[in-house]
Simulated scan of single mutants.
Amino acid sequence: MDASDGHADREWRLIREEAWPGPMNMALDEIAAETAAAGGPRTLRVYRWEPRTLSLGYHQDPDTVDWDHCEREGVGVTRRPTGGGGIYHDSHGDVSYTIVAPADELPGDLVESYHELCAPILDAFERMGVPARFAETERPARHQPACYLRELHPAHDVVVETDGEERKVSGNAQHRRTDAVVQHGSLTYAVNAERHLAVFADASVTPAAFRERVTGIADHADVSRSEAVGALEAALADWADATEGSWTGDELERARDRASEKYASDEWTRRRPGRR
């Protein structure tokens, strides 16, 4: 990245792929935002979800979840501070990332901000040989509770055109605080339609219909998951001229407290739409 792009002259840390439970992943994003807002380093992170997790959108109705299935199969459930539908994450099919920076260092316009922060994501796909781009058409939703089956949005949905159809390969969302911006997203490495759909209470969508709308990195490039993670980490690091870093002990302690008090609580996860 050229220093004139405006990010390389600031302090960025890259936290390479780690595995955390869902509530801890969301808590770490929040703590990273507090660190950046307080004058600390901006954060780029790549991560897995262990155990496998259903992350709900901020406004999602908890009745859309098959809670019995999730408990029986050991699928964790948490709620994101960002909107959209639910996403099933496991340690093979999903690669997740977060970018965190002070709000005054990013465009105020939402679409501009998405396009700036998605630049390294598109670069990562290019490094893998996956012809990904922003969606160009707004396709109608097939299953509103599932993020990957909602309507496509050109601002933040990344697709690969296959057989003349745009299939979603990455969803990205922002939580815009007054002092910091958190953008996190999911890159699909391998599609497991059956497991993805099983976490939802309404099973009216078939796996075949899911595959018509969703694709994965492994469908388009001969790269292993670890190679895909490496491409994403390299693209993020080059974009911000970041140095490899880690969480401080204080950040981890605060994140564990935040995860326990907020992101793992029924009050947060089973919250009804409209409640804060």
Score class of each variant (00 low, 15 high):
155 A>P: 03
153 H>G: 10
67 W>L: 12
169 V>T: 14
107 P>S: 02
149 L>M: 14
60 Q>R: 06
51 P>M: 11
78 T>C: 09
154 P>G: 10
131 P>H: 04
134 F>W: 09
177 R>C: 03
51 P>K: 08
176 R>L: 13
134 F>M: 13
131 P>C: 02
153 H>L: 14
157 D>N: 06
62 P>C: 04
83 G>M: 01
169 V>H: 01
166 E>N: 07
131 P>M: 02
147 C>N: 13
114 Y>A: 00
85 G>Y: 06
117 L>D: 00
159 V>G: 00
177 R>S: 13
100 V>S: 01
98 T>K: 04
113 S>D: 01
74 G>L: 05
48 R>G: 14
94 D>S: 15
79 R>C: 03
169 V>D: 02
102 P>H: 02
84 G>Q: 03
96 S>K: 05
116 E>P: 00
155 A>F: 12
150 R>I: 13
94 D>F: 02
87 I>Q: 08
84 G>V: 06
107 P>I: 07
90 D>P: 15
94 D>A: 14
81 P>E: 12
88 Y>H: 11
137 T>W: 07
58 Y>I: 11
152 L>P: 09
156 H>E: 04
149 L>A: 13
166 E>S: 09
144 Q>C: 05
48 R>A: 14
68 D>V: 11
57 G>C: 08
82 T>P: 08
105 E>D: 12
135 A>H: 11
48 R>I: 06
146 A>P: 13
47 Y>I: 15
49 W>S: 11
69 H>I: 04
177 R>Q: 10
103 A>R: 12
73 E>M: 12
56 L>M: 12
115 H>R: 11
58 Y>C: 08
118 C>T: 05
121 I>M: 11
174 Q>K: 06
160 V>H: 02
61 D>T: 10
61 D>Q: 14
163 D>E: 15
121 I>D: 06
137 T>M: 10
63 D>H: 10
47 Y>N: 10
129 G>N: 09
115 H>N: 02
157 D>W: 01
132 A>T: 07
100 V>L: 01
104 D>C: 01
101 A>I: 08
133 R>N: 04
75 V>H: 06
